[in-house]
Design a protein around this nucleic acid. Structure first.
Lengths: 343, 343
DNA sequence: CATCGCATTTACAGCGCTGTAAGTTGTGGC
DNA sequence: GCCACAACTTACAGCGCTGTAAATGCGATG
């Protein structure tokens, strides 16, 4: 089946290819009757423009890549949805790239742009350093999200992790909790995300006159709920006094919840929990988990807006934007003060 | 930065463009020294082929679209991950399309949206009928997943929903449960997915000599856990005897679990639950939910394999493949018989 | 030593569309 | 009634790469 081409339409309508192109692209200076004549020919032939050819001619692909560690991680899948929707509004297509948090995967992402596959990239790096990114990046439109790498030369969006963590911690303090722990550090984790959140945790505690010791940070073997649960069990076994847990993400919150349930410790009565990311995990768990909620829509919108500006040729140093966040208050750390129980 | 082109490399290496092209594409009949000379020029210039131009010349885009209702639904995000990974193995890129289950979204996927953009589409329809799909599906290779629409003319993968539902039901019967209900039908839902699962549910019950009445099907207002929970509450309020619930998906299972917890009914001791899709929701809930587990990897592999064959020009009627499934046995319906309690 | 056959390399015409600059018309002013 | 000017439309050269067919080089053969 030979596809219908622009030239075929032009021949049928008895006009030049360029006029047909103008009609297709809604170029303003086309007389109504001409537009109708061409449109009729298009309809009659069922013509669809070949986007690949258009791209070669314009140099624009109309596509952006969204590169995340894992698409099926709830935070990233929810973010992807917003990016896809915002992109659609702007007439852009989204290519999905999974880096699996590997260095090779992340390098491959930046190379794609060089291949002219996409006009720009929204990238949530994990393992690449700022230096590596800025070296690769050069002048291809790129917007980073997350906290991992923040080269000064590159646009970047994130929420204020320190502030958000402090707010989450203060929320527990307001509930009367004093024996708080942070879950958790992860063995072998080199990213700064945990550091920022830990920083906010510490800040809020010190404000409240509490000087947290190293034993207030629970360490897990990996990022799974199981590892989180194990860390909580270990702390409880060691006799640590705990009445509130600030988790670095919802997976750990789920793990903490499970561990507490397994030991018959009520949540939030005995130990309150705050998660992070406000993903389906926290909304669908039982009890539902109070969670730091990054405004994913805003992140998507800001990232895309900056990316489009770069694609349109904006030069200059990297811009660093802070997206809003809030605390999604649910069962595991409700708003009304359920004060800590005496043991 | 003027991009380096094939011609630049050719000039530097002192060969023709085509030879450079052959090196880039790993064409076998190139002498080692020639390959080296060209490769050196490529490295020196930092040349990257322009994929758009390649596409225009070859007629292949090397991209496929994956069109699902919602990317952030756990089932689809997990499926997407597999599709992305399998596609990567085959050197294909994946474009993400969200239909949001709307008719317009679904039509757009098959129509001009993808004109010349992708080599093929993997599509999970919800609202389009078989007829509509077969009418639209013309020139772009297409593979359908899910149960919604199954035109005879189009390739298709799904799991055997009737068999899987019967197995899930039998699992509960083997646990000694007899008072089973199906959660649930959804008001206004026109898809056949629920029907197939309900069919398997009924089949297994009849095998066991139980003739299920209409009151054994709980109806929810929508697909949310909240609606599922409400349906369970309503049934319990109505005094229905229930010792096991087969859910049409994990969201309903989460809802059922929540409702039972709210009423202080133990799971699985008093009422056992089986979910469907084996998503993060069932793995991360507490207690963990036993769930029908479609082999998502297999679905991705089969769909992609069929799609690639179509892209390579295979003609002929639609092929219909059944992907494997299993029952992921977890806490809410364990393997060992915890027999139903007398009330 | 000239010739043949094979493997490798080259030249060049597109792939389908758009940007540019150069027409072609039609209108209004003087 | 003629000319300048605006408003449309056209012709054509690429965008960067690859497929095809033809040309080249080279060792082997008689």
């Amino acid at each position: 089946m030979a596809r219908v081409r622009l030239a075929d339409v032009a021949a049928l309508a008895g006009v030049s290819m360029k006029t047909v192109s103008n009609v297709v692209r809604d170029y303003p200076h086309v007389t109504p009757e001409m537009r109708k004549r061409v449109q009729d020919a298009i309809d009659q032939l069922g013509y669809r423009p070949n986007l690949t050819a258009r791209r070669l001619a314009t140099g624009r692909t109309g596509m952006i890549a969204l590169a995340v560690p894992e698409i099926d991680h709830p935070y990233f899948s929810e973010l992807s949805r917003h990016v896809a929707e915002v992109a659609l509004e702007r007439g852009l297509r989204v290519i999905l790239e999974q880096t699996l948090s590997t260095s090779e995967g992340e390098h491959a992402v930046l190379r794609d742009r060089e291949a002219g596959l996409v006009d720009g990239v929204i990238f949530h790096p994990v393992s690449m350093t700022s230096l590596e990114i800025s070296r690769f990046h050069r002048d291809t439109p790129l917007v980073l999200i997350g906290e991992a790498a923040v080269p000064l030369t590159t646009d970047h969006v994130m929420i204020d992790n320190v502030v958000a963590a402090a707010e989450a911690t203060r929320h527990l303090l307001l509930l009367g909790r004093r024996e708080l722990v942070f879950l958790g550090a992860v063995r072998g984790d080199v990213t700064v995300t945990t550091d920022r959140r830990l920083e906010g945790f510490q800040l809020a505690l010190e404000e409240a006159g509490i000087r947290p010791g190293a034993d207030r940070v629970l360490t897990a073997d990996d990022f799974s709920p199981e590892a989180g649960a194990a860390a909580v069990h270990a702390a409880l076994d060691a006799g640590d006094r705990i009445d509130g847990i600030v988790c670095r993400d919802d997976q750990f919150a789920v793990g903490a919840l499970r561990a507490l349930h397994e030991r018959g410790v009520e949540t939030p009565e005995r130990i309150a929990i705050v998660g992070w990311d406000d993903t389906a995990l926290s909304r669908y768990s039982f009890p539902q988990i109070t969670s730091v909620s990054p405004d994913k829509r805003a992140i998507a919108e800001i990232a895309l807006a900056m990316l489009v500006e770069r694609i349109d040729g904006l030069a200059g140093p990297g811009r660093h934007r802070i997206a809003p966040h809030r605390l999604a208050v649910r069962d595991t750390a409700p708003r009304e003060g359920i004060s800590a129980l005496q043991r």
